[in-house]
Simulated assay, not measured.
Amino acid sequence: MKSESEDMSRTLAWACGMVLQSGPDDRRRIALAYQEAQTLIAGIPKDNGDARPRIVACFKRSDTYRADDDIACVGWILTAVQERVNERDLPDWRQFRKVINRTVKLLPLSSSTVH
């Protein structure tokens, strides 16, 4: 479990850094991708309570954007990490959730998407 938390910390730090360093246009692009990811995962059922299918779908989409050097990959990564944290079985899930929520608040989201 420790290494997964470390990986999660690194991934989340990278995503937060990308949001913080982004200008208004890139933040809008990240926000749009985040909203698309939220819509996508809402249609993917959990596997006996396991969010893995949702997480995998987000990482696949993120990889596609990242291959094109598209900042939208960050929105998909944030959603994937958020889904994993929402399972509430990581040792530091509450701290991760706080960081994710603060990061998402930096995005120009339409109010219907914010959880």
Rank of each mutant, 00 (worst) to 15 (best):
S3Q: 15
S3Y: 15
S5N: 10
S5Y: 02
E6D: 12
D7Q: 14
S9Y: 13
R10K: 11
T11I: 00
T11W: 04
T11P: 00
A13F: 01
C16N: 02
C16T: 08
M18F: 10
V19Q: 02
L20M: 06
L20C: 04
Q21K: 15
Q21V: 01
G23C: 06
D26E: 15
D26H: 10
R27D: 11
R27F: 13
R27I: 11
R29F: 03
A31Q: 14
L32Q: 14
Y34N: 08
E36A: 01
E36F: 06
L40W: 09
L40M: 15
L40H: 00
A42W: 12
G43L: 03
I44G: 02
P45M: 07
K46A: 09
K46S: 06
K46D: 11
N48F: 13
G49S: 07
D50L: 05
D50M: 04
A51L: 00
A51G: 02
P53G: 05
P53M: 01
R54H: 03
I55K: 03
A57Y: 05
C58A: 12
F59V: 14
K60M: 04
R61P: 01
R61L: 04
S62R: 15
S62A: 15
D63P: 00
T64Q: 12
T64P: 00
Y65V: 01
R66A: 14
A67L: 06
D68Y: 06
D69Y: 13
D69A: 14
I71F: 01
A72L: 03
A72T: 02
A72K: 05
C73K: 00
C73H: 09
V74M: 03
G75M: 02
G75R: 01
G75T: 03
I77V: 10
I77Q: 08
I77K: 03
I77L: 07
T79P: 00
T79L: 05
A80Q: 03
V81E: 06
Q82E: 12
Q82Y: 06
E83R: 04
E83M: 07
R84F: 11
V85R: 07
N86S: 12
R88M: 14
D89R: 15
L90A: 10
L90R: 15
W93P: 05
W93R: 07
W93H: 15
R94Q: 15
R94I: 13
Q95F: 03
F96P: 06
F96N: 10
F96V: 14
R97Q: 14
K98F: 11
K98G: 04
K98V: 05
N101T: 09
R102G: 13
T103R: 07
V104C: 07
K105C: 02
K105G: 01
K105I: 00
L106Q: 15
L107Y: 09
L107D: 06
L109Q: 09
S112Q: 14
T113R: 03
V114G: 03
V114L: 15
